[in-house]
């Protein structure tokens, strides 16, 4: 069962906005986020969208700051949402020694996480689902999809189902590093891809 965050913490977030600050207000260091199947600035494969199997894409990271105990990932589109961003995916409690995320993380809470990220849980995306749901921009428009990865200095054991606001609030003060990659997507007319 999801644990409610105290109302007062919500007020604190409103004051700090969505900017994530590190320890003692220092800017977190950056590290490298990559994917075996996606590249920043290039179109991602349609299997990561509802034009295909809508699997969560694989990610890898390197050069994490020393003392990284845990990671969190938010995938979001700053070109959608009222207000932006529209959140496609939230996953956290990722073990600090994981080198990345495999493709196709289960969208069903009844299905176990892959062993290398045991303990990871998913938060609620813009559709209110604790799962990855890929890009579905309006036909004919190209959108940018930010996969932001946060390195945390502590094992937080957060409950599943947090939304973006709640997650940012929960990791506030624990972010010691940050990295991201930004692939693109444009909706494909589906009848051009008969299988």
């Amino acid at each position: 069962m999801k644990v409610s965050l105290p109302v007062a913490m919500g007020a604190a977030l409103l004051l700090t906005g969505s900017a994530v600050t590190g320890l003692r207000g220092q800017a977190p260091m950056t590290f490298i986020v990559e994917s075996p199947t996606m590249t920043t600035g290039r179109f991602m494969p349609r299997d990561y969208s509802p034009d295909g199997r809508n699997l969560s894409p694989p990610l890898t990271w390197s050069g994490l700051p020393a003392g990284t105990r845990q990671l969190a990932v938010i995938s979001q589109d700053y070109g959608a949402g009222r207000p932006p961003p529209w959140v496609h995916w939230i996953i956290y409690n990722i073990p600090g020694d994981a080198g990345g995320l495999p493709e196709g993380i289960p969208f069903d809470p009844d299905h176990p996480m892959p062993p290398e990220i045991a303990g990871a849980v998913q938060g609620n995306n813009g559709w209110g689902l604790p799962a990855y749901r890929g890009p579905a921009p309006p036909l004919g428009s190209v959108h940018h999809y930010h996969f932001a990865v946060f390195a945390l200095d502590e094992e937080l054991d957060l409950p599943p189902g947090l939304d973006r606001r709640e997650l940012l609030l929960a990791i506030e003060g624990h972010v010691i590093g940050q990295g991201d990659m930004v692939p693109l997507y444009e909706r494909q007319p589906m009848n051009q891809f008969p299988r």
């Binding site: 999801k2 809470p109 009844d110 609620n124 604790p130 799962a131 939304d163």
Partner: peptide
């Protein structure tokens, strides 16, 4: 479901 479940399926 107050964010605690998809609104169909076994869960």
């Amino acid at each position: 479901t107050y964010g605690q479940s998809r609104n169909w399926g076994s869960a």
